[in-house]
């Protein structure tokens, strides 16, 4: 059930200013903080090379943040145009979730940078900073996906009378594959609790029982809700009346699916700590770029879909 307190009230200009501030903060951190010595050693880079390399990533990365902000704000804008309807309220909740996800991009980048700095300069705080950062990431992800899931479920209930209770086999199989492999990879990761050597870092710094209940299960929940949200929205598009309306929804649905799957992939890739770090830098960068592009495409689709839907309300 949707409640009014699920509606985050933020003006578009406030959102862009917020992202602008976060972008400037991140750029400042890049130039102010020295590059992690661990990274310099691992990839055989001089400090200036590392900084230039980071610039080549962060500028398109920041562009993607703004695309993400733009997409979620556009959807919010459309939902507010029809806010007296259940569709509007459901879409508004989804827009809030997408905005939180978008906000997670700069927060994660800044947090990651701060964490690297702390671990380099205050090694005794490495465990604490990693745990705090991971938990913040989980909380942001849970809030975002919970909003998207509830909005999607509410949207589907409008056309069906009630949300589909029977799980889709595709989603079940996908979830099973992702879940079991993620659990396996996490608990066979030799550096999940303790670093391999002095000066390096562990993935979680948590005993297995805490890792299971406070990290693994929440991430499984995030993927479960994310996949089902994408499924519900796609089912809504297939069920809703209106040829022109359904076509306008296509971009929106594609966007949500892109975002959910790419974010899940990012998280999944990050869980492969030792495997990812063993790859050469070029493959790592290629993967990062691809995933970032997918996220940007997803939000771009959301923006375009919202524009098409809003046009129906304006002609």
């Amino acid at each position: 059930m949707l409640r009014r307190n699920m509606l985050i009230k933020i003006k578009p200009e406030q959102a862009y200013v917020l992202f602008g501030i976060l972008a400037l903060a991140y750029i400042a951190l890049i130039f102010w903080m020295p590059t992690s010595s661990d990274a310099l050693t691992r990839y055989d880079l001089a400090p200036l090379e590392a900084r230039n390399l980071r610039l080549s990533i962060i500028l398109p990365y920041i562009a993607i943040w703004f695309i993400a902000c733009f997409g979620s704000v556009r959807l919010k804008n459309y939902s507010q145009a029809i806010n007296k309807s259940r569709h509007g309220q459901s879409l508004s909740t989804i827009a809030n979730g997408l905005f939180v996800l978008a906000l997670g991009l700069p927060l994660r980048a800044i947090g990651n940078r701060l964490m690297s700095f702390v671990q380099d300069t205050q090694p005794q705080l490495a465990a604490t900073s990693t745990i705090v950062f991971n938990y913040i990431d989980i909380i942001v992800g849970l809030v975002a996906v919970w909003l998207i899931y509830n909005g999607a479920r509410s949207l589907l209930s409008i056309v069906d009378g009630k949300a589909k209770a029977t799980p889709a086999y595709v989603v079940m199989i996908g979830m099973t594959l992702i879940g079991t492999s993620y659990v396996y990879l996490t608990f066979t990761n030799p550096v999940r609790q303790f670093p391999a050597a002095a000066g390096e870092r562990a993935a979680y710094y948590l005993p297995d029982y805490l890792l299971l209940f406070t990290v693994v299960i929440p991430y499984l929940l995030i993927w479960y809700m994310g996949l089902y949200a994408a499924y519900f929205i796609n089912l809504y598009k297939k069920s809703v009346q209106g040829i022109v309306y359904r076509k306008a929804l296509t971009y929106f649905v594609s966007g949500v699916v892109f975002i959910v799957l790419s974010r899940a992939t990012v998280r999944y890739m990050l869980s492969l700590n030792t495997i990812v770090e063993a790859w050469t830098l070029q493959y790592l960068l290629a993967i990062i770029y691809c995933l970032l592009v997918f996220i940007a495409i997803g939000y771009g689709f959301i923006a375009k879909g919202s524009e098409k839907l809003k046009k129906i309300e304006e002609v």
Binding site: H87, G242, I243, Y245, I312, E313
Partner: peptide, 15 residues
């Protein structure tokens, strides 16, 4: 109109 615009039909026609 609902066959074409679905949930947006009423608002479209009213407009």
């Amino acid at each position: 109109t609902a066959d074409y615009l679905g949930p947006a039909a009423r608002r479209f026609v009213d407009r």
